[in-house]
Design a protein around this nucleic acid. Structure first.
Lengths: 142, 142
DNA sequence: GGAGGACAGTTCGTTTTACGAACCCAGGAG
DNA sequence: CTCCTGGGTTCGTAAAACGAACTGTCCTCC
């Protein structure tokens, strides 16, 4: 967890990723949506690319010179639950004036939410139902 | 989401909460576990209390003077999925040398994981299966 | 009753980081 | 040839984080 935060815990990283999930790909659009200083944005996009969370893909729009855009990798897509978790908490407790975003299952149209589920199929409602069990490190030596 | 990050997105906040979920309650213990500067810790604990994520509870251990400890509120407990999301991503991609923590359902003993589920009961495997639908703000007017 | 020791902080000076504004460069459009 | 846009870089300043030292209260031990 500490490691994850070291990777995406800097000030704008997760917001950049949110925009990426919403389809933003170009530098200027990130900048407009977030209002972050360009220098910071350059740095954040750079580290996200370094970490393999985003890719820089060259592309060429008609009648424009070559540019590159930023797209999520699988590693980046797997951060989705984190974003959703932050979003759901915010929707529940912060009651922003900004409209929340509903998520629906593309296949069936039902609303989607994030839940803790156990391999027996129960869905848990509270953190209290979870017991943390420290694991031995993956030691291969005797 | 931006709001959530404004609340818990500062540098040590989520790590403090992780420790809180693992049962840490006292200032000195947080400090020892995290190695954060005391000034920062004071500040983070303060804002978390202000935000109603932690409570400061006075208590008195046998043969000690009165102290106060920090405990999670419901609002704080509801951040658990966020922490789990960060943890699972880290376990998957970061392969720290530190031992991961397994989570099991207190009732049935099965491992617990975080998943996106829709109200029809499907569990989704990828962010791609989700369609974000912008909501109108909660306007009560016509 | 005085010394020493947690515990829970403050205070202070230094180093990082974020911020905002200005500047730079390339390619197309007019 | 000049202007505009996209994607940056380079400043100087303002805000955080850091680490070490200092404060104060109560408790135990001598």
């Amino acid at each position: 967890m500490a490691g994850t935060l070291a990777v995406v815990g800097e000030k704008w990283s997760l917001l950049v990723l949110r925009e990426a999930f919403l389809g933003v790909r170009r530098f200027a659009d990130f900048q407009r949506q977030l209002g972050a200083p360009k220098a910071v944005l350059t740095d954040r996009l750079g580290t996200l690319v370094e970490q393999g969370i985003l890719r820089r893909v060259p592309y060429q729009a008609a009648g424009e010179r070559q540019r590159h855009e930023y797209r999520l990798t699988t590693k980046g897509l797997d951060l989705y639950p984190t974003l959703v978790a932050l979003m759901q908490w915010g929707d529940k407790y912060l009651a922003d004036d900004v409209a929340p975003l509903a998520l629906e299952h593309r296949d069936c149209g039902s609303p989607v939410h994030l839940g803790l589920v156990c391999d027996d199929g129960h869905e848990l409602t509270s953190a209290r139902e979870v017991r943390p069990v420290p694991q031995a490190a993956a030691v291969t030596a005797s």
